[in-house]
Design a protein around this nucleic acid. Structure first.
Length: 305
RNA sequence: GGUACCGUAGCUCAGUAGGUAGAGCAGAGGACUGAAAAUCCUCGUGUCACUGGUUCGAUUCCGGUCGGUACCA
């Protein structure tokens, strides 16, 4: 049976380098599951694999779309599953690595089908929020999908907006589409998460941010500044520099903010990974040892979902 | 040297017409099925600089000390 090896972990934990190492050892390829490395216009600020790293192992889903494109988890799941079907014809093992937990989960156990939402409908929901605030969204969801209203995070406009978009688009309650049933994949999945001591990870993050600045993050961000309203650019490392360009803070403050926000992002990633008990947490040293023993026929680990 | 203002949570500050205090940020924990590096939730006892005095009671009023800032010399 085929195996997908997932290498997850917080930002700056060394996923890229480690993945390349095992990809080389197993003679296989890497699927990126990083919602920002998808974009071809972004490099330095998202710590995308370098040219040299890309040349050491074949990577998929790195710089494959534009920040102008609409691309969501469902698109990613579809593309990744299609690709895995192909890859498993010639490979026993494939590696998936990245920090976007939702995207990894979509590939590992699927995501419910829901119809696409037209831009006009999204605009209409956005308008409702802008004019009526959170209250308007809450009232509308309570009215159109009371069952979902009971379980959503009612303070989170994003969740409410999403539900309304689907309601308006389909004329059915959002919850009618939320089956929440994990699909069985036809391949084994082995999940690893890179474990770091908090202080050590913070040091790595700070160092990496300083390096990004040295490598020209300012120039990259400056070039992207005109497109700052695109969602892809609502990203740590860019939004703080945009604020600096607009005179809202000094460069020094912007850099400090990038470090802080990156730490907070790492924390959120760990929260996400921790609740999924299928992950085996390993330090980089332990990961090296595990890599040596990896065989394509490792039995599947129990999923917690 | 003189005058004025300030000294309150890790940081920036608010406040108490005298009954021991609260926001933002940071930090910690968490949520999250199509914006996910996004979005959202929960968590605040700190010699209220120090020291005398007035008072039943002072972080709050008065004096002094120390530290900081500004202006005048």
């Amino acid at each position: 049976m085929k195996t997908l090896i997932v290498v997850a972990g917080p930002t700056a934990s060394g996923k890229t380098a480690f993945s390349i190492e095992i990809a080389k050892a197993l003679g296989t390829v890497i699927l990126s599951a990083d919602s920002r490395q998808f974009y071809k216009e972004m490099r330095i600020g998202i710590a995308a694999p370098t040219m040299e790293e890309l040349s050491q192992a074949k990577h998929y889903f790195v710089h494959h779309i534009s920040i102008e494109d609409k691309y969501d988890v469902a698109d990613y799941e579809r593309d990744a599953m299609r690709l895995l079907d192909e890859l498993f014809k010639t490979h026993d093992t494939v590696i998936m690595t990245g920090g976007s937990g939702l995207f990894i989960d979509a590939v590992c156990h699927g995501i419910d089908f829901m119809p696409d939402v037209w831009p006009e409908i999204r605009g209409k929901v956005q308008q409702l929020f802008e004019e009526g605030g959170l209250k308007a969204l809450q009232d509308e969801v309570q009215h159109l999908d009371p069952g979902y209203f009971d379980i959503v995070d009612q303070q989170n406009p994003r969740r409410l907006q999403r539900a309304l978009e689907v309601c308006y688009q389909t004329g059915q309650p959002f919850s009618a589409f939320r089956k929440g049933i994990a699909v069985e994949r036809s391949f084994h999945i082995k999940k690893y998460a890179l474990l770091w001591d908090r202080q050590a990870l913070i040091k790595r993050i700070d160092k990496r941010v300083d390096m990004m600045i040295e490598q020209g993050l300012l120039e990259e961000a400056k070039a992207l500044y005109p497109k700052r309203h695109l969602n892809a650019l609502n990203t740590v490392g860019y939004k703080e520099l945009f604020a600096y360009f607009e005179g809202q803070c000094t460069l020094k403050e912007a850099i400090a903010q990038i470090k802080t926000h990156t730490r907070q992002y790492a924390k959120r990633q760990m929260t996400w990974l921790r609740k999924n008990t299928a992950y085996q947490w390993v330090t980089l040293d332990e990961a090296q040892k595990v890599a040596v023993t990896l065989q394509p026929s490792i039995p599947q680990q129990q999923e917690s979902h």
